[in-house]
Computed example of a mutant assay.
Amino acid sequence: MTGVRRQPIRHELPWSYRAVIGAVRPVLMGITRRDWSGGEHLPPQGGFIVASNHYSEADPVMLAHYLVDHGHAPFFLAKSSLFDVPVLGTALRSLEQVPVYRTTSRAGDALVAAREALAAGRCIGIMPEGTLTGDPELWPMRAKPGVGRLALTSRAPLVPVAQWGAQHVLGHYARRPGNLLKRPVQQVSAGAPVDLDDLYDRAEEPSAHVEATRRVMVAITAQLAALRGQTPPEEPFDPGRRPEATP
């Protein structure tokens, strides 16, 4: 299994974020093994967006581990409700993570904050599905178009990242960790930034946001298929589709 020698963080971080890295990274190194690839696709400088699949409550931590060791500490877009949870909300604010206010008049605030972070050279992490996948085999499901909107309106590189293995640390919707004595392997692979050149002139069109999002999810799914050595479904699981009635 392969890892990388940790690289220095390439942008300024709040002291609390550096403290969390110092406390959490040694734990992750002790309870998991790494099989990482594609680090050469992460832009060496300037802000960029990382979009990843989401199938375990632990996978944001694993993605952050991968990015931090490549010199990029991610700032995640997180559900605003998490900022109301005692202790967790205080931690998220201290770490300068970005709240997402869904279906409210403040829904656009997250994009404004994210664009400002990108302009400042930060790495923005997004799980475009918005919640844990509903696919029974844990393949990526149909995503929300926010990542496409952010990518087109900011013109920041959009890097697809696939990961697999976090479910062995914390299962799908599980609240207790798995058998960490086995030191499960965490596979993370970054791909080349998604080509969106033909969509930038339509940056304010919802249909362009959907198409940009579709492209990054196709890339993530293809990378995940390579990690798993399996064939994904022809169409992604659609959480909004009603199940067919049984005759």
Rank of each mutant, 00 (worst) to 15 (best):
Glu137Ser: 11
Arg106His: 15
Thr103Met: 13
Glu57Gln: 13
Ala107Gly: 11
Asp84Thr: 08
Leu92Ser: 10
His172Pro: 07
Gly46Asn: 13
Gly121Tyr: 08
Met127Ile: 09
Pro184Ala: 08
Ala166Asp: 13
Gly108Asp: 14
Phe48His: 13
Pro86Phe: 08
Leu82Met: 09
Leu150Met: 05
His172Trp: 02
Ala120Asn: 10
Trp139Thr: 08
Pro86Tyr: 10
Arg106Leu: 15
Pro128Tyr: 08
Gly171Met: 09
Ala58His: 02
Leu152Tyr: 08
Val147Phe: 11
Leu92Asp: 11
Ala110Trp: 06
Val61Lys: 04
Gln45Asn: 12
Pro43Phe: 13
Pro157Leu: 07
Leu95Pro: 01
Leu170Pro: 03
Pro160Cys: 03
Pro160Gln: 08
Val50Ile: 02
Arg176Asp: 08
Ser52Thr: 15
Thr153Cys: 04
Leu181Gly: 15
Val100Pro: 00
Ala64Arg: 06
Tyr55Phe: 15
Ala51Gly: 07
Leu95Val: 06
Arg106Cys: 08
Leu181Phe: 12
Ser52Asn: 12
Ala120Gln: 04
Val159Arg: 04
Thr103Ala: 14
Leu180Arg: 10
His65Ala: 15
Tyr55Met: 11
Asp59Leu: 05
His70Pro: 04
Gly134Glu: 11
Thr153His: 06
Val68Pro: 01
Ala58Lys: 08
Val100Lys: 06
Ala51His: 05
Arg93Asn: 15
Ile49Asn: 07
Val68Gly: 02
Pro128Phe: 09
Ala162Arg: 06
His54Phe: 09
Leu63Ser: 09
Pro43Val: 12
Ala110Asn: 02
Val169Ile: 07
Gly125Lys: 04
Ala120Asp: 03
Leu152Val: 07
Ala117Trp: 00
Gly130Cys: 01
Leu170Ile: 08
Val98Leu: 14
Gly130Met: 02
Arg122Lys: 14
Pro99Gly: 10
Trp164Leu: 03
Leu63Gln: 10
Leu132Ile: 07
His72Gly: 10
Leu158Ser: 09
Thr131Ile: 03
Ala162Val: 14
Thr131Cys: 04
Ser80Pro: 01
Met127Phe: 15
Ile49Cys: 04
Val147Ala: 04
Pro43Lys: 02
Ala166Pro: 04
Gly165Cys: 01
Pro128Asn: 09
Leu158Gly: 06
Thr90Tyr: 12
Lys182Arg: 15
Gly46Val: 07
Ala174Lys: 12
Pro74Asn: 14
Leu118Gln: 02
Met127His: 01
Ala151Pro: 01
Ala166Cys: 06
Val100Ala: 09
Pro177Ile: 04
Ser80Gln: 09
Ala113Leu: 15
Ser94Arg: 15
His70Gln: 14
Asn53Lys: 10
Pro74Val: 01
Met141Tyr: 00
Tyr66Val: 04
Leu181Lys: 11
Ala58Trp: 08
Tyr173Ser: 13
Gly171Phe: 02
Asp59Arg: 01
Glu116Asn: 13
Arg183Pro: 06
Tyr55Lys: 05
Leu118Thr: 00
Gln167Ser: 13
Asp84Cys: 02
Ala151Ser: 12
Leu118Met: 01
Leu158Asp: 12
